[in-house]
Amino acid sequence: MTELLKIKNLHVEIDKKEILQGLNLQMNEGEVHAVMGRNGSGKSTFSNTLMGHPAYKVSNGQITFNGKSINSLKPNERAKLGLFLAFQYPLSIPGVTVANFLRQANKAIKGDAVSPRDFRKILYEKMDDLEIDHLFATRYINEGFSGGEKKRMEILQMAMLEPKLAILDEPDSGLDIDSLKLVADSINKFKEKNPQTGILLITHYQRILDYVRPDKVHVFADGNIVESGGPELALKLESKGYDWLTEKEPAIGRTGVTAKGQ
């Protein structure tokens, strides 16, 4: 098994406030890891940090991707190495069409110049997989899209850009059960076509893990992983909640599990 991502003693601050406090994580090619936790446990800080958001400062620790330290790389450089982040709240870019955006992204990442016609063919195929109307290709990115449409658009981007590591930040939040299944099916389909790709699935609920089976589950609390295990851990969380984990945490001046940070 080839190591894909290694995170060692990661400390991250935003506005001089430490959110991640010495996080360690390791994942191999082709693995699916689920990251679970309450709101404010540091999950989104984690995903934004991995992608290189400039507001999140790594004060200590090391992020190694494919054997290369990426701490100092810009988001676009990380994307070129094969990282991808599906945003929890995708932003709209007025006046820029989905097709134009994806074509430029595709060119930046893969470096190849597919003809506009071939590109459209590939795009339409992937849109069909996600049951996204072809008309969306000429719409402006996320402008006026519903919550579910935005989430599917993120998965479409992943399918087009074929990353080596896909970080999916709550791809299930706000979705009804049909949309959730559609998104999960697309993730699985993508996984089938790209078996080497690692997936870091950040989620609040166990529900999506019924469809996308994780190899490992990590539980976040107060800016760190407090428990790791197999898929059974997710089920346990579903029935028992998060409290039993945070309670067994060594008491080092923490009081309860008040939400903080992001």
Binding site: N48, N76, A79, F84, L85, L91, F101, A105, A108
Partner: peptide
């Protein structure tokens, strides 16, 4: 927005 676009490989 810049972060969003850059996360797709597009330069600043």
């Amino acid at each position: 927005k810049l972060f969003y676009l850059m996360s797709r490989g597009i330069s600043e």
